[in-house]
Design a protein around this nucleic acid. Structure first.
Lengths: 128, 128
DNA sequence: TGCTTATTGATAATAAAATCGCAGTATTGG
DNA sequence: CCAATACTGCGATTTTATTATCAATAAGCA
């Protein structure tokens, strides 16, 4: 038969749509439970797998950490992660910068940039 | 007593010193076995742990992959990884570029850049 | 050269993430 | 509405990376 629209899928889609930052599967489960109280971790993984195949979500792979998930279709961006409050902030405008790093004769297909430090709020509170 | 200089430690140090790219613990074991035929994986991990504490080696954390190890003390650099031959190539000259990405008021402490695509050799062979 | 003990090798144990199996549930075409 | 079956929940299992255990080995000082 065809794919079915379940409450669980709707819940995960809603969570991803409303998320301001990439989420872990557990984040997604916790938030989805406010919509479907019993949604399981396995189901979250299954739904994410399906969404990935349909390219409705993408993964954000921070070095040394398990993947985070975010809705697909956003404009190209990277992240600044605050080491104090752990928040992730989107960063734009890398393209022409990256090209300069590519060695001559190499074909650039993709790239990642990660910034780490203190966000504006935590920079201010740092001295306090 | 004091720390001892074992053949295993020497072998790992030699492997790291001669490596042109960051290596996995298994890579290191395989290469070290050409020097000390019986060196075990556990020993490689133990030695790497010690070298990390002494800051004689650093880890390279590719997104979504377990850490690679390389000798410390190199000039700041990033990597271009060829998707075809899997080789990693060092890339330099990111600094002033990265600064432009930092949002106002944020404090940049660290950053990572990863380039993916085809190296010069594989770019040439691609059409063949 | 001996002796102390840091270190090793082999394997079991652990940790964390993701998947699997299956009985029960709920969606949807008719 | 109802039946076929896609999907779910739960727990067990797998996978991969790393660490712990412990008897055996080997640095390196006296």
């Amino acid at each position: 038969m065809t794919e079915r629209n379940t409450r669980q899928k709707t819940a995960v889609a809603t969570v991803l749509a409303e998320a301001r930052t990439p989420l872990t599967p557990r984040d997604i489960q916790v938030r989805a439970r406010t919509i479907v109280a019993t949604i399981s971790q396995a189901t979250v993984y299954r739904i994410l797998k399906g969404l990935l195949e349909k390219q409705d979500v993408t993964t954000v792979q921070l070095p040394g950490e398990p993947p985070l998930y975010e809705q697909a279709g956003k404009t190209h961006h990277h992240f600044f992660r605050c080491r104090r409050c752990k928040q992730m902030y989107e960063v734009q405008g890398c393209d022409n910068l990256i090209d300069r790093l590519v060695p001559k004769g190499f074909t650039l297909e993709d790239h990642d940039v990660f910034l780490f430090g203190l966000c504006r709020t935590c920079t201010g509170e740092q001295s306090a």
